[in-house]
Design a protein around this nucleic acid. Structure first.
Length: 362
RNA sequence: GGGCAGAUACCCAAGCGGUCAACGGGGACAGACUGUAAAUCUGUUGGCUCCGGCCUUCGAAGGUUCGAAUCCUUCUCUGCCCA
């Protein structure tokens, strides 16, 4: 259930109720693709204050596999995570593993990137897997296309996504009662590339089917920020006001500000966690989020931090260590460096969302 | 004292007459990363540059040659073996 509490030029402010807690929107989800936010424990994420993490159907399906997931009582118990979980469907892997899959009406035939085994992921199986995982917010299996795409490809992907969305919803309802998490939500995924007419069509078809929320997929795949904004603006009047809107896969902090202004309620992105592992840290520079330079990205590995006694962050664990120490950890490839950087960046994104929520309320 | 092997850029290490400012690693430096096949990938790593080149380099000093990191001589240093 979604409760839109207010809306203005700064964005939408709401509450999303899931079986594992009520989430204040807009919010950001750290990514735990393979049942772990890389380098962090569930305890760490709790400490950092995230009420939700995102995991992945395709990856958990391959490993540990659904027999393990079933035996261990679902992902919440498996990773000892007590708050909400959203699972992506594997639709992004249609894009990122495009060399290893074949699309048919029936579903996606993946050639496992691990052992090469051929595995068929259908919209129905995708729902069953997410039910077994015990996800709170499930995604329909969609077809995420690359940009630019060959003529007709975006349209075909969109149409297939819609047909799969219908099948997904039917299967989602069919499996509700037997599920370990019957109160889970199901989101449809809007496709259509950067073609506004296709986008509107995709959204309308999904709205006709009816979902608990609407994801905007197929963005953050290389298109310019302005182009993504146009898509969001085109969708605004079609997507129901009383349902949450989820921008899949993005973005950089200043882009998130722009997307929130255009009505987005939910985000996820690998940038904070991946960048952290690669030594790039986010930090606030100004309080005014309308300034494009309200934050900076620094390379902790840079020589200029060699003798730096500045602490990494202002509070908690991060206030105990210097940039000089962090730089050292990265130079000698000590895992703690990646962990501290990840904590810093996840904290940054969570704080960004907190600031945005306050901006809307003000 | 004698014999053999070797000395190449920050380190290791190719090269054995011209296409060599010198392969490949490592290190160092810089950058990229957007629903995670990602602790990954890319670039730079002698100096100067009007970006066409120019200059100085392969232990040292001489020499041979049109031309040497590559061949010769001597020296210095290192390792191994024999006395």
């Amino acid at each position: 259930m979604f409760n839109l509490k207010g809306q203005n030029s700064n964005g939408r402010r709401g509450e999303l109720v899931t079986p594992h807690g009520m989430l204040q929107t807009p919010f950001f989800m750290p990514i735990a693709t393979k049942a772990s936010v890389k380098t962090l424990s569930s305890f760490d994420i709790e400490q950092l204050g995230s009420p939700i993490v995102l995991s992945n159907t395709y990856h958990l399906w391959l490993r540990p596999g659904m027999d393990v997931m079933k035996e261990m009582g679902g992902l919440h118990r498996f990773m000892d995570w007590h708050d909400a979980i959203l699972t992506d469907s594997g639709g992004f892997q249609v894009f990122s593993l495009s060399g290893l899959r074949k699309l048919t009406e029936e579903g996606v035939e993946f050639q496992s990137h691990i052992d090469g085994a051929k595995m068929m992921l259908t919209p129905e199986l995708c729902m069953q897997i997410q039910r077994t995982i015990g996800s709170d917010i499930c995604m329909v299996l969609d077809v995420c296309t690359e940009l630019p795409a060959k003529p007709g490809e975006i349209e075909r992907a969109l149409e297939l996504t819609t047909r799969w969305a219908k099948r997904s919803k039917d299967e989602f309802e069919r499996t509700r009662e037997e599920s370990i998490n019957p109160g889970a939500l199901l989101f449809g995924i809007v496709q259509g590339g950067t073609d506004l007419e296709l986008r509107k069509r995709s959204a309308q078809e999904l709205v006709d089917i009816g979902f608990d929320g609407y994801s905007i997929g197929g963005l953050s795949v290389g298109e310019p920020f302005e182009e993504a904004c146009r898509v969001l603006e085109a969708l605004d009047s079609i997507l129901p006001k009383d349902k949450p809107r989820y921008f899949m896969g993005g973005a950089q902090p200043h882009e998130i500000v722009g997307y929130v202004q255009r009505g987005i309620d939910m985000f996820d992105c690998v940038l904070p966690t991946r960048n952290a592992r690669h030594g790039t840290l986010y930090r606030f520079v100004h309080d005014d989020l309308s300034r494009p330079d309200f934050y900076e990205m620094i390379h902790a590995t840079n020589e200029k931090y060699k003798y730096s006694k500045d602490v990494i962050g202002s509070e908690g664990e991060l206030s105990r260590y210097t940039m000089g120490y962090l730089r050292h950890l990265f130079s000698v490839n000590e895992m703690l460096g990646m962990r501290l950087a990840t904590m810093n960046n996840v904290k940054f994104y969570l704080e960004l969302m907190e600031k945005l929520r306050k901006t809307i309320e003000a």
